[in-house]
Amino acid sequence: MFDPLGMLEIFRTGQLESSYARLNPLVKFILFITFIIIPLISTSFLLQLFSLVAQIPLILMSRSGRRVVRSLKASTFFILILIVLNYITTNNIVFSLSMVIRLLTMIIASAIFMNGSNPSEIGDVLSKLRVPTSITFSFIVALRFIPVLADDFMNIIASQASRGHEVERSGFIRRAKSLLPLLIPLIVIAIRRAQQLAEALESRCFGSGKRTSYITYEMGLIDFLALAYATAIMITGSLLATLPPEFLLLPFR
């Protein structure tokens, strides 16, 4: 139930082939932002429910079903805490449920976006949004080097294990000490890689002037349809938000 690594799943980008994946990345980003912003407009239960349900076509389009389920499962702990805390403070079950559904909507939006975009695209979107090159570049380089450093770490653990080293299980200080033979080589290697990378970047004229882009994206019919959908969601959501929250409870009276 409490699965921190599973929650990190949300950040892992996918390579899945789907019609959603073929959308212009800026459009994907707009859809993502739409479903983050809309639930925040008001606390109306109706609005939250609507936002959740409106993503179903996107889940199908991006074939993210499995990933969504995984992300939700990983978040069960936090969801329960959220419900309980909200109920304790407000004594309003409907409100508590709204808050939970809002969280679910955002988790699903992230899962869809991450599943249908590759990191390079995300980097391109960030550039387009005028995020400074240093930040977008750091993002891509970090993703590029995570597997490399992970491999280094595996090799370090194997090397040290072959010298009889075992990670201590008990005692905080003992445990920390036993991690030093693993962490120090990793840090040294990471710094060395960074230095060589910097050299290589200099030698390829990085940072010497205005950069152009090799990859371009086009807008097709499906992109405009997706934008239209996002707009429709925004409008409907805003309308629902203006309805009084008690509106939904009418059937229950």
Binding site: D152, N155, I156, A158, S159, Q160, S162, R163, G164, L180, P181, I184, P185, V188, I189, R192
Partner: peptide
């Protein structure tokens, strides 16, 4: 204590 395995990259062990 019986088999000493020496890996390719010495930098993976120094600390």
């Amino acid at each position: 204590r019986k088999v000493g395995l020496v890996f390719q990259n010495p930098e993976h062990m120094f600390f």
